[in-house]
């Protein structure tokens, strides 16, 4: 028995401890403020919880050793001792206290993450559409689009507007921050920001059928100038995205990366609307001014 609890403890702790040093643990190695908040929260919760769980595990080991039914065991034996108000109050109290503290941090950060991570920088919007089995990223401000990779400027808060034209999926770039779902007919907004240049692993994270596993994408973060340069390159050297291209993309298939010099007006709104967007009008409060203008347009039609 001793062995079991020890093994569990050691395995779990080594898992977590080695996580600090090893760069493979991307969730714990954030490269932006959102991921940082979440990593801090993860560590806070681990420490808080471990401060209770570890002593309890030790107490458990102690009890099991001390009160084993062995001949000559002189530990007290009180078969009728079944009630102690003080003890009961203590162990109703400990979890309540723990949950209280952890709950405070949870609620605080839940509200924090709704806001742009850096308030003094003009944010940028990227519209994300999950398809079977690929990602379409539209840059409404730059009026370009990419498939299966993202290029972003560093130190700029990015408002990812997420939707899907396929089964529900999830957009996750662990080193920049946590994920959100891509929902049909509805846009969810996810703030992320990269503070360091680099290429980050991104993945689809909610099962969506046959080739779900292949929906991986790179997020390339570069300085603002390099980003602008890339935008210009895309504008000059790529072909435009037409509605026909989109129809082709939205069919079930696996494709490589590509980029488009222009995007059809209102394509994102069209995707949202065709999957029931009209029923969530009031939920579009997160849409940028740009979108709001476009929505007004489509409403007036």
């Amino acid at each position: 028995m001793k062995r079991i609890s020890k093994i569990s403890l050691i395995l779990f702790l080594t898992t977590l401890l080695s996580a600090c040093s090893n760069a493979d643990y991307i969730v714990l190695d954030p490269k932006g403020p959102v991921g940082q908040i979440q990593a801090n929260l993860i560590w806070t919760s681990v420490i808080l919880l471990a401060s209770v769980i570890v002593p309890v595990l030790l107490l458990f080991v102690f009890i099991v050793i001390r009160y084993r039914d062995k001949p000559g065991n002189r530990a007290p034996f009180k078969p009728e001792w079944d009630d102690n108000k003080t003890l009961e109050i203590i162990w109703w109290g400990i979890p309540i206290l723990l949950i209280g503290v952890l709950g405070f941090f949870t609620v605080r950060d839940t509200f924090v993450l709704e806001e742009p991570p850096s308030k003094d920088v003009e944010p940028m919007t990227i519209q994300v559409t999950s398809l079977d089995w690929k990602w379409l990223f539209q840059y409404p401000e730059q009026e370009i689009a990419t498939v299966n990779y993202l290029q972003i400027p560093t130190d700029t808060p990015i408002n990812f507007e997420l939707t899907t034209d396929a089964p529900i999926n999830s957009f996750w770039v662990p080193q920049l921050g946590g994920q959100k779902y891509t929902l049909p007919g509805k846009t969810l907004s996810l703030w992320l920001e990269a503070e360091e240049e680099g290429t980050y692993f991104g993945t689809a994270n909610n099962f969506s059928g046959k080739d779900f596993t292949k929906m991986k994408f790179d997020v390339i973060a570069k300085s603002n100038d390099e980003f602008q340069q890339w935008v210009n390159e895309v504008k000059q050297s790529s072909k435009p995205l037409t509605l026909n291209d989109y129809q082709e993309l939205s069919k079930q298939s696996v494709v490589g990366t590509s980029e488009y010099s222009t995007i059809p007006a209102d394509l994102f709104e069209y995707i949202v609307d065709k999957n029931g967007g009209q029923y969530y009008r009031s939920n579009n409060h997160t849409a940028s001014d740009h979108d709001r203008k476009q929505l007004e347009l489509s409403n007036n039609e």
Binding site: G35, Q38, L41, I42, S45, L49, I99, S170, G178, Q179
Partner: peptide, 18 residues
């Protein structure tokens, strides 16, 4: 313990479906 970790909503964005 890991269950409570998962319940921490903002952190769950990193654990969810992993």
């Amino acid at each position: 313990m890991t269950g409570v970790m998962l319940a921490v909503a903002p952190a769950d964005f990193q654990y969810h479906n992993s």
